[in-house]
Simulated scan of single mutants.
Amino acid sequence: MNEFNERYGTDSVREFTVSDADAGPYSLAEGPDGALWFTLVHRGAVARRDPDDGRVTVHPVGDGPTVITAGPDGALWFTEYRAHRIGRLTPGGAYSSFAPRTPEGGPFGITAGPDGALWFTLSSADRVGRVTVDGEVTEYPAPGAFPSALTTGPDGALWCTLNQGNAVGRLTTDGHGTAYPLPTEGAGPVGIAAGPDGALWFTEIGAGRIGRITVDGAVTEYPLPDPAARPHAVTAGPDGALWFTEWGGGRVGRITADGHVSSYPLSRTDCEPHGITAHDGALWCALETGSLARIEVRP
């Protein structure tokens, strides 16, 4: 029996089919209505899983919906990577979208900012954008190459991974950027989240590591048991630890604030877990093969 089963029990991971295998569940977020919302990147849709009966409702949107987040206006906001737009969907299903100022920018990451606006990355254009809930768009140069995921830090700035710059970037709300290089070459950082310890935590998909950076720029890296795990997304869990997806091995990982790593298998090594979020006291991750996995968290 592995460490996960010893601590949580064999019934603590459940998977729910929410689409066909070609639709591609990718990113998820808890909505203002208490439901779980997720993108179907290959179907051009955003879906809602009802918290009571598990019923899935699918809403067509623009091409390539990728990362999704809850906005300050009671709507869901998401990037449309292939349509090069920022999408907005109300819990009632009303859809609208906004064009960044830079065309063909490849919007990827998105987060609610500290200033009441939504912030997003334009990975292909090396820029970071800001859109108000009324649709007014501003853009700034990213502090490095290929900005990917981003989040609001405890210091009131935006923090993003610079996937091709091998660095983590910090951007103030007035557009001043700073890059912090990573110690490991070819780390390829992707996911990033604010941790419960006042630091930012990120995944190194190219190096098989989880990184931690303080708001002063001090970086620590933690190697995973499987160097080929290809960690992708990361989120703070309800248990005070950070949880992340291992795209390369079909697992969900957990790392404590002091660096203790555990890795727990999902049903298939090729299930392609991508986004992960806390919801209803558990961790949920999107499996690109057509399911959502729920991981129970126990004290």
Rank of each mutant, 00 (worst) to 15 (best):
P60I: 06
A70Y: 02
P65Q: 02
I68P: 08
V58T: 15
H42N: 14
A45E: 08
P51S: 04
P60A: 14
R55F: 13
P60S: 12
V46K: 03
D50G: 12
G62N: 05
I68F: 03
V56A: 10
H42P: 01
G54S: 12
V46F: 12
R49D: 07
L40K: 01
H59R: 02
D50K: 05
D53E: 04
D50Y: 14
R43A: 15
D50R: 00
R55N: 11
D63V: 02
D53L: 04
V67C: 06
R48P: 14
G62S: 14
T57M: 11
V46E: 07
P51E: 02
P65I: 01
H42C: 09
V58A: 13
T69N: 10
A45L: 09
A70H: 00
R55Y: 09
L40Q: 12
G64D: 07
V41Y: 04
R49I: 15
P60E: 11
V61Q: 00
P65M: 11
D50F: 08
R55V: 15
V56K: 06
R48H: 12
T66A: 06
T69W: 05
V58G: 10
T69L: 10
G44Y: 00
D52N: 12
R48I: 11
H59S: 12
T57R: 15
T39G: 12
T66S: 07
A45D: 04
V67L: 08
V58Q: 08
D52T: 13
A70V: 02
G62K: 03
W37G: 10
A47V: 05
G44P: 07
T66L: 15
T69A: 14
T39R: 05
W37N: 11
R55K: 15
V61G: 04
A70E: 04
G62F: 01
R43V: 05
V56R: 09
V41P: 02
D52I: 12
P65S: 07
T69M: 09
L40D: 07
G62Y: 00
P65Y: 04
V56E: 13
D53S: 07
T57C: 04
R55M: 13
I68W: 02
V41S: 02
G64I: 01
G54V: 11
V41W: 02
I68R: 00
I68A: 05
D53V: 01
A47F: 04
P51Y: 04
T66Y: 08
W37Y: 13
V58C: 09
